[in-house]
Design a protein around this nucleic acid. Structure first.
Lengths: 213, 213
DNA sequence: CAGAGACTTAATGTATACAAAAGATGAATA
DNA sequence: TATTCATCTTTTGTATACATTAAGTCTCTG
């Protein structure tokens, strides 16, 4: 693996996991020493992060970790809803019903995954991620898929703000199952509605449990 | 201005204006000699272009100018419609009516601009660009605005494929005027409809006059 | 003659030295 | 004491030398 990739992954993880808080200045020499690579790959990593919006160039004095305010969460979900509602509708029109029927079945069994011992809910999130991937593949639109992929990075970051309580995850799994079911049924309007409901509840939950840093 | 900015702007212009055709391999040393800067700023410029989607990393053998096929134009407009229809609705809800009323008036006078001697239609495109900016400002959603800004780069590139005939520009100006009018009237559903119509006609025109390279 | 493998070559990836620019700090003055 | 200017320091921006990797080519073998 290239050194710039390692620097990128490390910094990205640190930002997403809130080990690097918003407002933190990422000086090139400091990070290159911390990560054990030279400034060149660090610069490339910071470039990529800035392009993604995880960091912001602070003109002349390095790059800083981008802030996530309550207002920006609203904006984030406004775009998310715009994209994902459309994606769900397109998936219902173009997707393979069998794929989503299978995901539907698995999502109904999600409570089993959540009762397991894994505190990080790894299997659960992997399942949700497979639904995202299936939708990406079904819409067969690389521009739209890329736009959603770019957003998901920010969403993972936001998710860390909210408490991952089991009750909410159970409800979210049911909402995801409803989306998969609507897509499998080839019903675009129902898929839109199910997505709208899910995103609205998700946003409500995030804002309710938001713990200011 | 920084050398990397100059390299970025130069390469970007060359790609948008089709002086660098899709599939062209952009070797670092070759471009650094052509642009008169060292490899470092060229690398940064290529990084940015790749992040925007104008170039694609071709693993190990430099970056190549991204292709624009007829299929990808359909995908591009699918995302564009998703974003701009929503943006128009939000602008109708949140924008200052006065701003869009003024733009409406100016757009109705667009034929005057098109009859002038400027072959590049500079004033006309500047006016349309002001409408875009006004919508960006009105929605007050940086994520959505950024997503649209990222798309517009590709759209300018596509526009170069189509003949800029005066008849289409007259019609497009009228469609833009209708969008501005709907936003000024604070009517989200009408703004959505006007945007849908405009984008549909725009796509139809591009595909009809498309000259394969 | 076809195919596989090693070698050559030319490209990108990385490190580092140097240049330039933006801030911070200090002193001098009003 | 506050303000401004100059200097100094720290940081980013650029160039270039070196390392590494991947592709192309040539040869050797089946």
């Amino acid at each position: 693996m290239r050194a710039s990739d390692r620097a990128y992954n490390a910094l990205r993880e640190d930002i997403i996991e809130w080990r690097l808080r918003p407002g933190t200045v990422l000086a090139e020499v400091e990070q290159s020493e911390r990560l054990g690579v030279s400034r060149t790959p660090v610069r490339e990593a910071l470039s990529r992060l800035t392009a993604e919006g995880l960091t912001t160039a602070a003109g002349g004095r390095g790059v800083v970790v981008t802030d996530i305010s309550l207002d920006s969460i609203d904006e984030l979900f406004e775009l998310r809803e715009t994209l994902e509602v459309r994606a769900a509708a397109l998936a219902a029109e173009r997707g393979e019903p069998g794929v989503f029927a299978a995901l539907h079945t698995q999502l109904l069994r999600a409570p089993d995954l959540l009762s397991s011992e894994d505190p990080a809910r790894h299997e659960y999130y992997a399942l949700v991620s497979r639904l995202d991937d299936a939708i990406d593949a079904a819409i067969s639109n690389s521009y739209l898929a890329n736009a959603m992929r770019g957003l998901r990075v920010h969403l993972v970051r936001v998710r860390r703000l909210a408490a991952d309580d089991t009750a909410r995850l159970h409800a979210a799994a049911a909402e995801h199952a409803a989306i998969a079911e609507a897509i499998a049924a080839g019903n675009p309007r129902l898929a839109e509605a199910a997505t709208t409901v899910h995103l609205h509840r998700s946003l409500t939950h995030v804002k309710a449990t938001h713990t200011p840093h």
